[in-house]
C-alpha cells in the first residue's frame, strides 16, 4: 500500500469511520467555497480612511517601522530622497517594475537613481508598492508577480514601500478579500494564488541572543513606509 493510502487509512480508522459520504462532504465543500471570518478585533472597526491611516501609522511605528505621509504621488520622490539623505544612504534604489511606481514623477528629484527589476545581492535600498496595508497591526501585504519580485522585500538592507491610503484595510480578513477580488476568483486555489504572499510587520529582527531585540537579522534593518493620502490613487 502506498504511504499516502496507508496514512489516510490510519486517519480514518482512528476517527472510527470510512471516507466521507457526499452528504458529509457538502458542508465542508461549502466552508471552503465561502470562507467565513472568525472574531475580528474591534480595534480597526468603523474607521474611515483617515482613521485607518492613523491606526496603521501608530501600529507600524510601534514595531519600529518609520512612516511618512504625503498628499499625492508627486510628493513621493522628495519624501524618499529626504529619508535616504537623513539615513546617510546612497540616493540609489532597486525598484519593482510596478505600475504605481512607474507613475511617480521621479524627475522631480533628479539625483535619485532608480534601477528596475529584481535586486542584486549588493543593492542597498529596495523600493516596492504594497498590495494592501492592514491597519489592525501595521502590516504590509506584498504579492509576487511579474511586477514585484519577492527578493526585493528581503535582500536590500533598507526597504522602502509605497502604500496608497486607498489600499488600507482594517483587519487581515479584508486584505484576503482584496486579493480574492483582484484575482477574480473567490477561490484562491491554483494559479489564482500568487506564488508568494508576504505579510510584513516592521523590519527584520531577532531576539535569539539573551532575548534582547536586534533589528536587521537577515532581512532589512530599516522599513520605511510612504503613505499616499490622495484618494484618487488606488
Amino acid at each position: 500500500m502506498s504511504a499516502r493510502d496507508d496514512i489516510l487509512g490510519t486517519v480514518r480508522r482512528s476517527l472510527k469511520r470510512g471516507g466521507l459520504t457526499a452528504e458529509q462532504e457538502a458542508p465542508l465543500l461549502a466552508r471552503l467555497a465561502r470562507p467565513q471570518a472568525g472574531p475580528i478585533p474591534a480595534r480597526s472597526a468603523g474607521r474611515d480612511r483617515r482613521g485607518l491611516v492613523e491606526l496603521f501609522d501608530s501600529q507600524a511605528c510601534e514595531v519600529h517601522a518609520t512612516v511618512a505621509r504625503v498628499a499625492s504621488l508627486a510628493d513621493v520622490p522628495a519624501a524618499i530622497g529626504d529619508y535616504l539623505a537623513r539615513q546617510n544612504l546612497p540616493a540609489e534604489m532597486t525598484a519593482a517594475p510596478d505600475k504605481l511606481l512607474d507613475g511617480i514623477p521621479w524627475d522631480r528629484r533628479p539625483l535619485l537613481r532608480l534601477k528596475r527589476g529584481k535586486p542584486d545581492p549588493a543593492d542597498a535600498v529596495g523600493l516596492s508598492a504594497a498590495f494592501a496595508g492592514i491597519a489592525e497591526t501595521g502590516t504590509l501585504m506584498l504579492i509576487s508577480g511579474a511586477h514585484s519580485p519577492s527578493t526585493l522585500n528581503f535582500l536590500p538592507d533598507t526597504h522602502v514601500v509605497v502604500l496608497p491610503a486607498a489600499r488600507l484595510v482594517g483587519p487581515l480578513e479584508e486584505a484576503w478579500k482584496r486579493l480574492r477580488a483582484a484575482t477574480g476568483a473567490m477561490k484562491l486555489a491554483g494559479a489564482a494564488m500568487p506564488r508568494t504572499v508576504n505579510f510584513i510587520t516592521g523590519p527584520s529582527r531577532s531576539a535569539d541572543i539573551e532575548l534582547t531585540l536586534q533589528l536587521g537579522a537577515h532581512g532589512p534593518r530599516r522599513l520605511h513606509i510612504v503613505v499616499v493620502e490622495d484618494d484618487a490613487v488606488a
Binding site: Q59, V63, E136, T137, M193, V197, F199, I200, T201
Partner: peptide, 9 residues
Amino acid sequence: QDMSVYTTV
C-alpha cells in the same frame, strides 16, 4: 507581538 514580522504564504 501582535504579528510576527514575516508571515509568508
